[in-house]
Design a protein around this nucleic acid. Structure first.
Length: 618
RNA sequence: GCUCCUGUAGUUCAAUGGAUAGAACUACGGUUUCCUAAACCGUCAAUCCGGGUUCGAUUCCCGGCGGGAGUACCA
């Protein structure tokens, strides 16, 4: 049983004994003791002062005395400061706790079985007219991490992606390619498919704006010019042909979309994200129309004189929402309804989570109500995991103004930075090779006469892991709801509260474990005395479980990121103050190695939830 | 205008209603007989304003002020 649980039970009994009042669990507030006081756990006794009718300090003292009597194996000593009862826990309890953590490689994870709730997480959801940028990166990383967190909280998870593969924006790219492309392909140009298509999208926009500018110069007002420009008319004509299944347009559409998918796949692979099931809007938008017709028959929606279909949500405190245009074509909302229908056919979903930016908060508020009205049981409490925008120092990213941070470029730059850092570190000979160091390992570190090639690839792999770790952590440590700032001028740091700091801590522990030989079994032998740093590390380890629960409840992976940092920082202090391997006393040495091993394990698990790899050596 | 989100050191981020609001970056100053110095330690520095609830508020409620997003035939 957990130490907290034991104490909570005891406190409840004691309060009832002393003051004759039964208390609920939530009144028993146990927290970690502040470092400036003696003890490890602190009970907040303010809630009980009403029952005791005594001063806080006196109440704390009474409860403390009884606690020591009642749980002599758990509570060794206590001290009362104001309304805070600080408890010193017996060493054996900590050792036992560490043993439990160490014995369970899946510590903090809840088991998932066939009857666990099924959660579907939708994320990424790109348009196929341009490459992914930093905003998409935030979406993908959050989506992936959230899926992992949900799994760790005992859910079956299906990761899904809805690709917006149809619409006017695709036609713009297609048109531009036909006009100015000269048959350029990813192969012929050496460009990634998504970048190639993105370039034509930009080209369209450039020419289009020029046309609008000329029309305005001729005296047309701007709104009209935007609609009357020949290019946009041509694009619309193409969209109509697409809708009519024109074989020529469809063939081009398929070819160009495929280029984009190949490009996206590379980016997804680099980011380490994947999907269990991908939906395409070209396949779902007609389903949505059917579903809306169905709702119309049931009287949930109504049709206006011009033929457009609307939902009246004024009773819900919202406005009226368009579902089908007067020409019968579907809008965004309709497509989401169609996608929901297909998903529900494919999976017995208990909970649906949409990872979509906060600019669409209103959309999902409406979608939730509509899906509920249409009879989706998970509609009412669908989760819109709404994350903030990534801003640049001079404001929002705007693809038209060319102020986007491209995902592929960014990833490449991060890996490059990591590589340079790594080389720099190798070139500056750290401290002189001590005598105790394993000679063969020392030699391999310096020069690599035979295996230069394999070492190069190892360096490459480490650079990849570290570069991506820095990027992922940088994004995931921020509370998802908040807008975040990214300054491309200052590259992402590798020092301080960063992914590489945590990775480095992990790699160092692995190095210690290699040196120490076999994975140490925690000796059951009693420790006479544990140092404060050791106890606080064990407490920190224990907190992992609670952190994972909280992340699942709040749908927010950022607390896990911050937890990993705190754990690593705590370990670094421990590492610096004690020498893990040099300890003469074998038992203490074993204990510290075991503690290190447990820290490494938890770091690995925590970073795994964030989709961040940890290297065995750095 | 209305709706939602958000205001914490110079900057980027933390803080289940709990003790003296934590880190990191930057600046300055220390620490390598050592298992990896991508480390550790120190100094400087912050809760937008005003009410309320509470033994206790950065946190919850109300009112201002500032920032962001959305606001209907775009996705």
């Amino acid at each position: 049983m957990k130490i907290e649980t034991k104490i909570t039970e005891a406190v409840k009994a004691i309060v009832e004994e002393l003051y004759g009042v039964a208390v609920e669990d939530k009144l028993v507030q146990l927290g970690q003791t502040r470092p400036e006081f003696e003890g490890q756990l602190t009970l907040v006794v303010f809630p009980f002062t009403k029952m005791s009718h005594k001063a806080p300090e006196q109440t704390a003292g009474e409860i403390g005395e009884r606690l020591v009597q009642r749980l002599p194996d758990v509570v060794a000593r206590f001290n009362a400061v104001k309304g805070f009862l600080n408890l010193s826990i017996c060493t054996a309890q900590w050792v036992e706790l560490l043993a439990e953590i160490q014995a369970n490689p899946r510590f903090g994870f809840q088991p998932v079985g066939d009857d666990s709730p099924l959660v579907m997480v939708e994320y990424s959801s790109p348009n196929t007219n341009k490459p992914l940028h930093l905003g998409h990166v935030r979406n993908n990383l959050l989506g992936w991490a959230l899926a992992k967190v949900m799994e760790a909280n005992g859910n079956r998870v299906v990761k899904t992606n809805i690709v917006n593969d149809r619409g006017i924006h695709i036609c713009k790219s297609m048109l531009a390619w036909l006009k100015w492309g000269n048959g350029e392909t990813p192969e012929s140009s050496g460009k990634k498919g998504d970048h190639l298509i993105g370039d034509y999208y930009v080209a369209f926009d450039k020419h289009y704006r020029e046309e609008v500018r000329q029309l305005v110069a001729q005296g047309m007002d701007e709104e009209q010019a935007k609609q009357e420009a020949p290019l946009i008319k041509e694009a619309h004509a193409m969209l109509v042909r697409w809708e009519q299944n024109d074989p020529e347009v469809r063939a081009l559409w398929q070819k160009m979309n495929q280029w984009v998918y190949d490009g996206f796949d590379e980016t997804y692979k680099a980011l380490g994200v994947s999907f269990d099931k991908i939906y395409y809007e070209s396949q779902t938008y007609l389903e949505g129309r059917e579903k809306v017709e169905e709702g119309l028959e049931k009287g949930i929606f109504y049709r206006r004189d011009d033929g457009s279909v609307w939902a009246d949500l004024t009773a819900e405190g919202l406005d009226e929402k368009l579902l089908l245009r007067s020409d019968g074509t579907s809008v965004y909302m309709t497509q989401d309804i169609g996608t929901a229908k297909l998903r529900f056919q494919d999976y017995p979903i208990d909970k649906m989570i949409y990872v979509v930016g906060n600019e669409q908060n209103y959309h999902f508020q409406v979608l939730s109500i509509l899906l509920d009205k249409l009879g989706f049981k998970w509609g009412r409490d669908l989760v819109h995991f709404s994350y903030g925008m990534v801003e640049l120092p001079n404001g929002k990213m705007k693809s038209r103004e060319g102020t986007v941070v491209d995902a592929d470029d960014l990833i490449a730059a991060m890996i490059q930075n990591a590589k340079e850092k790594w080389q720099e570190k190798r070139e500056t000979p750290s401290n002189s090779p001590s005598k105790g160091e394993n000679p063969s390992e020392g030699a391999a570190k310096k020069v690599s006469p035979s295996s230069g090639d394999s070492e190069g690839s190892e360096a490459q792999e480490i650079a990849r892991i570290v570069g991506l770790g820095a990027l992922k952590y940088f994004i995931l440590k921020v509370d998802a709801r908040k807008n975040m700032l990214f300054n491309p001028e200052e590259s992402i740091d590798f020092n301080g509260n960063t992914g590489p700091f945590i990775q480095y801590t992990y790699a160092r522990i692995r190095s210690i474990l290699r040196k120490a030989g076999e994975q140490p079994a925690l000796c059951a032998a009693q420790q006479t005395e544990l140092a404060e740093l050791e106890i606080s590390l064990i407490q920190k380890l224990q907190a992992f479980e609670q952190t994972v629960r909280q992340a699942g409840q709040d749908y927010n992976p950022s607390c896990i990121a911050n937890y990993c940092y705190e754990l690593a920082a705590e370990y670094n202090r421990f590492y610096h103050d004690f020498s893990v391997l040099r300890e003469e006393d074998t038992q203490k040495r074993q204990f510290r190695i075991a503690l290190s091993a447990a820290v490494a394990q938890v770091i690995k698990n925590g970073m795994g939830l964030l989709g961040i790899e940890v290297p065995e050596r750095m």
